[in-house]
Design a protein around this nucleic acid. Sequence first.
RNA 1: GCGCCCGUAGCUCAGCUGGAUAGAGCGUCGGCCUUCGAAGCCGAAUGUCGUAAGUUCGAAUCUUACCGGGCGUGCCA
Length: 575
Amino acid sequence: MSALIDTLTLRFDQAIVAAFGDEHAGTPPVLRRSNRADFQADVALGLGRKLGRPPREIAEAIVAKVDLAGLVDKIEIAGPGFVNLSLTGEWLAREVRAAAADARLGVASETPETVVIDYSSPNVAKEMHVGHIRSTLIGDALARVLEHVGHRVIRQNHLGDWGTPFGMLIEHVLDTSGGDASSLSIRDLDVFYREARAKFDGDPAFAERSRRRVVLLQSGDAKTLELWRLLVDLSTSYFGEIYARLGVGLKSGDVCSESFYNPMLSKVTSDLRDAGLLEDSDGAECVFAEGFTSKEGKPLPLIVRKTDGGFGYAATDLAGVRHRTATLGATRILYVVGAPQQQHLAMVFAVAAKAGWLLPPARATHVAFGSILGPDKKMFKTREGGTVKLADLLDEATTRALAIIVEKDPPHLDDAARREVARMIGIGALKYVDLSSDRVKDYVFDWNRMLAFDGNTAPYLQFAHARTRSILRKAGGAVDAADVAIGTPEERALALALLGFGDTVSGVAESLQPHRLCTYLFDLATVTTAFLENCPVLKADDAATRASRLALCDVASKVLARGLGLLGIEAPEAM
RNA sequence: GCGCCCGUAGCUCAGCUGGAUAGAGCGUCGGCCUUCGAAGCCGAAUGUCGUAAGUUCGAAUCUUACCGGGCGUGCCA
């Protein structure tokens, strides 16, 4: 669409200048898809007000001047001054051919920036659970989209691997395995954490040992660090398994955890002090940013260093901002973090700006998201009220998908293929449901809905793709985009949809809203299946129509696969 | 108390910088398989866009107030 919109914009601009003079150059034509034509231009309404003339008169003047020969079949003015445009099949065909020839399928490349994306961020020695899924999936999708439009993306997995809990965890390692943590199983980690927690809460002597252990850890005691490292390695390899199953692009090299920033914290604090930003308040060292007030209406502090001398997570986050701009060279930092952290992050950004660590063009954005709710509209829990483990969620997704496939009993898939497809569908459904609604809102988790083959779901999109692939396989021979011609209403609708891919992806890179890509893909899949229903491809009336439809099939297939790919979802060849 | 977020069909959700009769899916009702994949397609019905004002030629969209729900509001991260 980009190329198409660009051309129309240019022609309208020329017409506006010709009709009303140079001072109106660059007036946006306000083009959008229309249900009464292919596009409508709403510029006359705004311009009418500006010029104090009736909008219809403005529209007539523009239409009289605009040169759309060969591009537009029909141009008419309707209502108060809408300009409705119907494109020629020739032009649509030409644009589809161009998009098909483009390796990026019509997605424009942007001026490259270095973008840091902070996402996933599970805690060491704890199981990944439903609370981590949104950050992981949204962050991964955004990383893919931003990379695709040409940015240099640096993924950062801000693991929780430091702080007071590690005292009790290490003591518990010593208690249970005599210091040999290698006997610990990955699967035991969550249980292990809970046991340590229970002992910490119930056994004062253990709690005291734990506190001493924290001191040893922070002072760099070799034996303590060794045990700590063991826990971290165990966890990261477990996280790696989950990421691999999810198809998330986070690697061990992307880990940049709390402990990484630990050596920088005293410098962060002293630099804040030198800059005159740090104040002592009730024994804690704080920075006060304007615009944040507490319950009592007093200024709200960002606590950098606690009364006990320990650093708060604000200190780590500030060190993170500085590292990302100064060392990694980021000009855009995305924090894919739950909505409740809004105020904290706003304060961190404000303080980082005051300290000079986050200056234009660099900026930070909180990519906030809502909660996953259970059927009762409360936080999603297991039937027993426990935390839902991510690993269990992945198991159930593939199990349920496989059950559906077995029930459908597709003759063209053997057992191995069924299992593989079930994996793609199950994981895809889980990911898609998380990405397909506005991320800032809460959503209700429902297996049946996400795995349905109707509606705005991953399986529906995957099925549309599989159908196009099936036809292309049966066609056998080469497909040539040069054959594309647009005739029927379904072909026209498909062409228009295909040409919208570029603008959609650019829009997602800007708004950071993956659900817009989902909405687009659902529309494309709907239009594609309508095309397949109404326009015989292999059995087309003549060779030229067959070649054209085959080519359309091919482009649709590629855009669907690419679009799903940008969401981190696989598209099976058959299902 | 203050701040942020949310409120669109019975249910789950779209609705892009204000634009024409507010759109999907599920569910309901009715059609379509000797025809490239019926895991599909086509059609029908369904709304005080939380409420009330305001700005505007025009508001689901912008402003304000209120109602309802969620979250945050100094030493957990």
